[in-house]
Design a protein around this nucleic acid. Structure first.
Length: 587
RNA sequence: GCACCCAUAGCUCAGCUGGAUAGAGCGUUGCCCUCCGAAGGCAAAGGUCGUGAGUUCGAAUCUCGCUGGGUGCACCA
């Protein structure tokens, strides 16, 4: 059980003994660490109900608690201000909690959820290079993914490639003009691969903007692309085979990036994978009477009477009969329900797509595929440049994700050289370390912002080794490991926890691991983890400053120090692990 | 026009199921290495929480108005 829950139960019990609701006993971490470790504000809420003034109620609770506890858990129970109940834990109790935490590979974090979850994030487009805009969905999605797994969920992650719209009709039609005789475009395509048709990322990257531009100015060309799109969506075998080749080269490329970022997907499905089920879903929707014709398109009305805003209908098929992303997203819901029976499907995308998901969720519910409450959209804010506008390169162009990351790596390497790390490490090790630090800088920098808010990207701040940054966290981790290995060399082993004043603040932070992780999971808020880990690291640095572990003469005290920093190391390592951040050997 | 989100220290941001002196990082100003990694630590200065009202014993937090930003409002994803 989590610490605040345990304490809330104890205090809640005292409230009950006094004839008041147990819920009033909710205990939270104190706002005033100078006065208490934890606090309960319930006496003020319960005063009216009890017909007493808040301090009287608080006194009753404190009396009941003292009688029950006899100084075992609480070294101090006091009343302050209008009726705050302040709790201070005994060092024995702290030590006991730490012992339990240190013996558990999950550091006391219970499995708080057991849901089957499908999480959809990333959403790279086939045939287009990843750009900076893909950073947030990958990082946030992956952090939430890892957090849910750690919380006990059975998670299936899907990258959900974008590859079913007009852009792909454009590309295929262009290939058809280039290779009119290819088997991909013949009537009786039998599934063979045409090696003469060369598909590489470079070719696609050059082709797409060119053809896209052409379609803007040339109606006939655009019409050809649209027709090709329609045939593709209708299941044209050769087109789909060619599209599959676009997918293959794109996936190979995206995989390089996700591997580098230590992000791994269970599924590499995309919009095009909805094709086999489009008719089935269409017929189902039709049978349910959900589809109607409107202005030439086929729509599903999802507005409700009690809506306080206008919710436009979902466009099932547009007036050209083409599927769009509402179509594929709805079919994907059907497939995920069929294949995984999830308790929840979570989508991580730009918050601007909130309305789109609202429509899809309502439609999925109307179709009886899954209850709307089981569908969740996590919308993140924009990554902005120094000017407060969406991040662009200096000349106003869109920066590729590769370029963006290289920039961060260069900056990290520069810093590492300043401190002479390149003289201590081989070129290979140095490169790996720079990569690891750059990834941490990027991930921690991004994730330490609340997901929903837009934020300003400042490379110097992200890569700085000072302040609330990834490298600062890694540095704390590296220092601990360094001390631990020196201790091990000297044969100093960890012993039992003996909490004295030097360790108290750190101990208190550590035993709140499960509380913080749990809060972060429930709120889908990686920034809570960042904040918490930063506090842990600061508490550690502060502790470390005031004592000398290897030189400590009292051996019991020394061995308790080792136990303490071992636990700290685990908290930092596992905590950072939830954000997808690793700690290097040296830095 | 309708709806949603945001406005907190010089800068970047937390806090928002109402509660005690509103927090952090950066920056600024002082200190602290004969000692395990000072990429560290300690301390100080810095805020009428956009604005006006309301609810409440108590409001950064809840409600309403206003101002100033952002976003979305059927066939692009």
């Amino acid at each position: 059980m989590m610490l605040t829950q345990e304490l809330s139960a104890i205090v809640g019990n005292a409230f009950q003994q006094c004839g008041l609701p147990a819920e009033l006993g909710m205990v939270t971490v104190s706002d005033r660490p100078d006065l208490a470790d934890f606090q309960c504000n319930g006496a003020m809420k319960g005063a009216k109900q009890a017909g007493k003034n808040p301090r009287e109620v608080a006194q009753m609770i404190v009396d009941a608690l003292s009688a029950e506890d006899k100084g075992e858990k609480f070294s101090e129970l006091s009343i302050a201000g209008p009726g705050f109940i302040n709790l201070r834990l005994t060092t024995d109790f702290l030590a006991q909690k730490l012992t339990v935490l240190a013996a558990d590979e999950r550091l006391g974090m219970p499995h708080i959820m057991h849901d089957k979850i499908v999480i959809d994030y990333g959403g790279p487009n086939v045939a287009k290079a990843l750009h900076v805009g893909h950073m947030r969905p990958f990082l946030i999605g992956n952090a939430v993914d890892r957090m849910l797994r750690f919380a006990g969920c059975d998670v299936v992650s899907d990258v959900h490639l974008g590859n079913w719209g007009l852009p792909y009709g454009m590309l295929i039609s262009e290939f058809e003009m280039m290779y009119p005789d290819s088997v991909y475009f013949s009537e009786g395509y039998n599934g063979e691969k045409d090696e003469d048709v060369v598909v590489t990322l470079d070719i696609l990257a050059e082709m797409y903007p060119r053809v896209s531009q052409q379609c803007k100015g040339d109606e006939a060309r655009k019409e050809l692309a649209q027709k090709t799109t329609a045939k593709m969506q209708a299941g044209h075998k050769g087109y789909l085979a060619l599209l599959q080749r676009f997918n293959d080269v794109t996936i190979a490329d995206v995989r390089k990036m996700t591997d580098f970022l230590d992000i791994h997907f269970d599924l590499w499905l995309g919009e095009s994978d909805t094709q086999p089920d489009q008719d089935a879903v269409h017929n189902h929707l039709k049978a349910k009477g959900l589809i109607e014709d409107s202005q030439g398109a086929q729509i599903i009305r999802v507005a409700r009477e009690d809506d306080n805003k206008e919710v436009p209908p979902l466009i099932w098929l547009n007036s050209r009969g083409a599927a769009s992303y509402p179509t594929t997203d709805l079919i994907t819901v059907y497939q995920r329900v069929r294949d995984y029976s999830p308790d929840k499907i979570i989508y991580v995308t730009d918050y601007r797509q909130a309305q789109h998901f609202e429509q899809v969720f309502r439609a999925a519910d109307l179709a009886d595929y899954i209850a709307e409450e089981k569908l969740e959209h996590i919308g993140y804010g924009t990554l902005n440049g120094q000017d407060g506008r969406p991040f662009k390169t200096r000349d106003g162009g869109l920066l590729t994700l590769n370029g963006f990351i290289s920039m961060i790596i260069d900056k990290a390497a520069e810093r590492l050289k300043e401190i002479g790390l390149h003289e201590k490490l081989s070129d290979e090790e140095f490169k790996q370390t720079a990569d690891m630090i750059a990834i941490a800088a990027m991930k921690f920098g991004d994730l330490s912002n609340a997901i929903r808010s837009d934020y300003i990207f400042d490379i110097d701040r992200f890569v700085s080794f000072e302040g609330k940054t990834g490298p600062y966290m890694q540095y704390a981790g590296v220092r601990i490991k360094s001390v631990l290995s020196k201790a091990a060399e000297s044969g100093i082993e960890k012993g039992v926890f003996m909490i004295d004043d030097s360790q108290r603040a750190l101990a208190l932070q550590l035993i709140l691991f499960a509380d913080n992780i749990s809060a972060a999971v429930k709120a889908r808020a990686p920034h809570i983890i960042c904040e918490y880990l930063f506090n842990v690291a600061q508490s550690f640095n502060s502790f470390y400053q005031n004592i000398h572990i290897l030189g400590e003469e009292n051996k019991e005290r020394q061995s308790s120090f080792i136990a303490m920093i071992t636990a700290t190391s685990q908290v930092i390592e596992i905590g950072l692990g939830l954000l997808g951040i690793k700690i290097p050997q040296q830095m």
